[in-house]
Each structure stands twice: as C-alpha cells, then as structure tokens.
Nucleic acid binder design. Structure first.
Lengths: 109, 109
DNA sequence: GATTTCTGGTTTGCGACACAAACCGATTTG
DNA sequence: CAAATCGGTTTGTGTCGCAAACCAGAAATC
C-alpha cells in the first residue's frame, strides 16, 4: 500500500495557516479593521500601538495581498489615508482563525 | 484619570502569545513531542518533515527556553539524540493554545 | 589495512523579514 | 520668514528561519 503521511492527522498536512496573517502585528491590524469600517491611518496607529513606519510597511503588504483597501484623499489640503478590510481580507481572516482553531484543538490537553 | 489602553478589550493587552511557540515549525515540533514521550532526532525529523539543520537549530532554541529536554547517548558506538517535552514546555504549549483561542474568539464572526 | 561511503548531528551563510528612525513635502505657528 | 509640526514613506539594521556544507566516527568496499 502506498506510504502516506500520518493518516491519523489528515488535517495537519492540509491546514493552511496564512503566514501573512500569522504575524501578530498584522493579525492585530486585521482584527481592528474587522470591527470597524473605514479607519484612518493615525487612528489605526493609535488602536494598534504601532509606529507609523511599522504600520505603513505592514499595510503595504496587506494591500499587496488584497486583504485591505487603502484610500488616499485630501481633507482641507491635508493628506488623509483611510483603510478598510476588503471582502477577501475578511474571508482570509476568518479562514485563518478557523484553521488555527482546528490546529490548536487537534492535540488533546 | 490616568489614560489606559482600550478598556473594552482588556484581554488583548494582557494576552501573551509566546513568539517562540508561535513559529509554525516550532509549534509542529512541540505538538509532536506533546503526544509521545522520548523520541529520537531522526524519528522527529521524519514526523515533522524538517531538514536536519532546521530541526537542530529549532531544538536548540527550545532547549534554551527550557521547553525540551535533550539527551545524548551512544548506542552500539553510534551517537543517538533523544528529545522530550519538559514540564515547563508542556505548560507553555498549553498556555499558548489557551491564549491563542481567546485571541481568536475575541472577534465575532 | 586503506580507502571510500554513509551516518547522526552541528555549524554556517544567506535571503527575507520586522521594526523604528530618518526623511520628505506640505501646513501651521510664532 | 524661520522653525516646528504633521501625515505618511523610505531606509538601514538587527534578527531570524532555512538548508547546504561540514565534522567526526562508523560501516562498507576493495
């Protein structure tokens, strides 16, 4: 019979844990965005406690993955960036949480 | 009154997600060790699918944290390393899983 | 017995990454 | 007008995860 990876943990081989979301900083960003609609950059910085440089570089990564939408506009001649979770970002976030729970529960306590 | 980090998510600020365990490779090592007693290096390599170099460097980190016990011996003049999860490693692993679940469940779906 | 190959594990080099300070262009303040 | 502040981006650096290269010793081959 063809040799397999261990058959009694079929999920373990198949579970995809999104490394983009698995980084605690990005998880935190996404979980804040999950609860609000559009939020501006400075407010998100305050919510997450990140530095501007840090937040900016993570948002770029999340935007590149299509997980967030970034809108830039000028309000009274002042630059203003707002961020929102995209539909695919919301799905990815829920899938991450689902798969993580499965992974965590596979091992008895 | 002294300003606080957001009072409506008290857990989020206090939850400790152990970065040592949060790395998927190390989580995998620990979850395999969780289920068996002492396991030898090569068998653990087979269970986890890691390269020898990768497994070795992660085991060193886990040993430095006191999460695993490493025993080296000679069997028929051949080097043999066996690894086991320590009591504090077991506790840390369970705490990691508990805190991760809380973090994952804090946000509604 | 000498040489070559294999073994069990360690060490090393490198590409990728997370982070925050430095920076930029524009606005506000004195 | 100069200096300070603002909203955000860019950059440099330290750390990290990974697997190939390496090591010492045993086994296999000649």
């Amino acid at each position: 019979m063809k040799s397999h990876k261990s058959d009694d943990t079929p999920h373990q081989e198949q579970l995809f844990i999104d490394p983009l979301i698995h980084v605690p900083t990005r998880f935190r960003i996404l979980s804040n965005l999950y609860l609000v609609g559009w939020v501006d950059f400075l407010f998100l910085r305050n919510l997450t406690g990140l530095t501007k440089g840090n937040l900016s570089s993570h948002l770029i990564k999340l935007e590149e993955a299509g997980y967030v939408l970034i809108k830039k506009e000028f309000v009274n001649k002042i630059s203003r960036t707002t961020i929102s979770l995209s539909d695919s970002g919301r799905e990815a976030f829920n899938l991450y949480r689902k798969n993580m729970k499965i992974m965590l529960d596979e091992i008895p306590e």
